[in-house]
Amino acid sequence: MTPELNEKGIESKLKGQINLVLLGLNNVNDNGSFTLTTGIMMDDPIPQGASAAMANGGVKSFVKASSIEMPRGIRINSVSPNAVEESWERLEPFFLGFEPVPAHRVALAFKKSVCGAQTGQNYEVY
């Protein structure tokens, strides 16, 4: 890990998603929702994944805390997928011992987040 790589994770994964919500609040419909993406590394670390784990954990914390401040009935959740089967050939060397999940199961978690009634949740797909 280097400060430069850590900053990249903060700027893209963490601040990118948070800023999406902050900028989108005036554009999302009443009772609409935001769904952000975290990942398995915040709960099940891998070598060379500390920055990604930090950014994922930050997104999860933002979702939980901001859910009580959302105006106009807006909901916010996150989806935390394991590595997906469709990317497994490229990711397997980094996720040794993990069992990938099919993308359609990850899609169901996003559907639950968007169409459901809960807010402040992190839907794990392992």
Score class of each variant (00 low, 15 high):
8 K>T: 08
35 T>Q: 04
3 P>N: 04
58 G>E: 06
100 P>L: 12
9 G>D: 13
65 A>I: 10
65 A>T: 15
113 S>M: 03
58 G>K: 02
4 E>G: 00
30 D>V: 12
48 Q>F: 15
32 G>W: 10
13 K>E: 12
77 N>T: 05
89 E>I: 11
27 N>M: 11
30 D>Y: 07
64 K>H: 12
85 E>V: 12
100 P>M: 12
80 S>F: 07
68 I>Y: 13
89 E>P: 01
108 L>W: 09
17 Q>K: 06
89 E>A: 14
117 A>G: 05
62 F>W: 06
23 L>W: 14
85 E>W: 11
37 T>A: 08
10 I>W: 13
77 N>W: 10
94 F>D: 09
126 Y>I: 12
40 I>Q: 04
90 R>D: 13
86 E>R: 03
73 G>R: 06
97 G>Q: 06
66 S>Y: 14
10 I>K: 09
72 R>W: 11
61 S>Q: 15
70 M>G: 04
40 I>L: 13
86 E>V: 07
47 P>L: 11
27 N>G: 14
55 A>W: 02
29 N>C: 14
59 V>R: 00
39 G>Y: 08
87 S>E: 13
6 N>R: 09
32 G>R: 00
15 K>I: 12
69 E>S: 09
51 S>Y: 10
117 A>T: 10
74 I>M: 07
102 P>T: 03
36 L>W: 03
9 G>H: 15
92 E>I: 03
6 N>P: 01
107 A>M: 06
28 V>M: 06
37 T>Y: 02
72 R>F: 12
55 A>L: 05
66 S>F: 15
104 H>Q: 12
73 G>H: 06
20 L>I: 09
46 I>H: 03
37 T>E: 04
66 S>Q: 11
46 I>C: 02
75 R>L: 11
7 E>Q: 14
126 Y>F: 15
81 P>M: 10
20 L>C: 15
120 G>F: 07
50 A>Q: 01
109 A>Y: 05
49 G>D: 02
1 M>F: 13
14 L>E: 03
121 Q>L: 08
37 T>N: 08
115 C>T: 09
54 M>P: 01
15 K>E: 05
58 G>F: 10
119 T>F: 01
48 Q>E: 13
39 G>A: 10
26 N>C: 09
63 V>W: 05
114 V>N: 04
89 E>S: 11
41 M>G: 02
46 I>Y: 06
3 P>T: 12
56 N>W: 07
88 W>G: 02
88 W>D: 00
35 T>A: 06
67 S>H: 03
10 I>E: 07
92 E>F: 08
67 S>C: 05
78 S>Q: 03
77 N>C: 07
111 K>T: 06
47 P>W: 08
102 P>K: 14
8 K>C: 05
4 E>K: 09
75 R>D: 10
53 A>D: 06
107 A>E: 02
20 L>A: 15
25 L>I: 14
115 C>P: 00
1 M>T: 12
122 N>T: 15
17 Q>N: 07
30 D>F: 05
84 V>N: 05
34 F>R: 01
73 G>N: 06
13 K>Y: 08
16 G>E: 07
25 L>K: 01
